[in-house]
């Protein structure tokens, strides 16, 4: 797929996220919008997977440790063909497979149940060790994490363990958007220097623009090429990316757009923030 095509898919995913959150009347806006390029890269290039066979036993595994951002995963999965896009509007409603936070047993293709932060990397470690014993050391395991999530002690217990067993098939992608619920990460609980922290724990660290689809694809290729260490990609993203009034504003971490805000956001996304004319206008 060309870069242009991937970027258009990312824009479609962002529009789906806005529609889903408006319909759900609750949920997180900033994180999923910021992650749209990463999830486009993963589902449309990086991952070895089959949307028609979600339990294919040669698939790569994507664990979403930042479960609150799951609308972006649902939208990426629907656009990739896991299920009909119409189902996206059932998000957070009674009886839906699309729970407010991801539940493995509800929707095929989700690899785990998450929401409470800090548990994804530990599960990746168990999976990597188990797959190695199963004679499948080649299957890659990707873990997305929020940056606020790095406040959790469980993350660093796991970060210490993965290099011990040289679990090189694990690639962590940290969504470094600098915001969490109560404000900027560096005022809530300073995280920097993140590169030095992960390196000190024995990880191969890459820093990229997380809103550049090609940069995400390249970084994942580099992570696979390094076979002596697990890799941590610090992906710098813009929270609320693509919607001007949401970008960089931590107030949008945990709230959905209302109808007027959603309308405005969708026009902006369709016109790529005023760069092109939308056929809908």
């Amino acid at each position: 797929m060309t870069t242009k095509q991937l970027e258009l898919i990312a824009t479609d995913i962002r529009q789906d996220v806005i529609k889903m959150l408006e319909a759900a009347k609750s949920g997180h806006s900033a994180g999923p919008l910021g992650l749209a390029d990463i999830f486009t890269a993963l589902y449309f290039d990086v991952l070895k997977h089959d949307p028609k066979k979600p339990d294919w036993d040669e698939r790569d595994i994507l664990l979403m440790s930042n479960g609150h951002c799951v609308p972006v995963r649902y939208a990426a999965m629907a656009n990739a063909g896991y299920f009909d896009r119409k189902e996206l509007l059932t998000l957070r409603k009674l009886g839906s497979r699309l729970q407010g936070h991801p539940e493995r047993t509800k929707l095929p293709g989700l690899e785990s149940t998450s929401g409470p932060l800090g548990s994804g990397l530990s599960q990746a470690i168990g999976l990597a060790m188990g797959l190695r014993l199963n004679g499948q050391p080649h299957r890659q395991i990707y873990v997305t994490m929020g940056d606020g999530e790095l406040d959790e002690g469980n993350v660093w217990e796991a970060a210490m363990l993965a290099p011990k067993y040289n679990l090189d098939t694990i690639t962590v992608i940290v969504d470094r958007n600098n915001i969490q619920i109560d404000g900027p990460t560096e005022s809530v609980l300073p995280l920097e220097n993140l590169r030095e922290k992960w390196e000190a724990f024995g990880w191969h660290v890459l820093e990229i623009d997380g809103n550049d689809v090609e940069a995400v694809i390249d970084a994942c290729a580099m992570a696979r090429a390094v076979t002596t260490k697990p890799t941590c990609i610090l992906a710098y993203t813009v929270p609320g990316k693509g919607v001007d009034f949401m970008e960089y504003d931590f107030k949008w971490h945990g709230v959905p757009p209302d109808h007027e805000q959603a309308k405005k956001a969708l026009v902006e996304l369709r016109t790529l923030q005023g760069k092109i004319r939308s056929e809908h206008e």
Partner: peptide
């Protein structure tokens, strides 16, 4: 690291 202990267990179980 008991939090890691049980959660690594969940990952191992996911691998069968």
């Amino acid at each position: 690291a008991e939090q890691n202990l049980v959660t690594v267990g969940a990952g191992l179980a996911a691998a069968g």
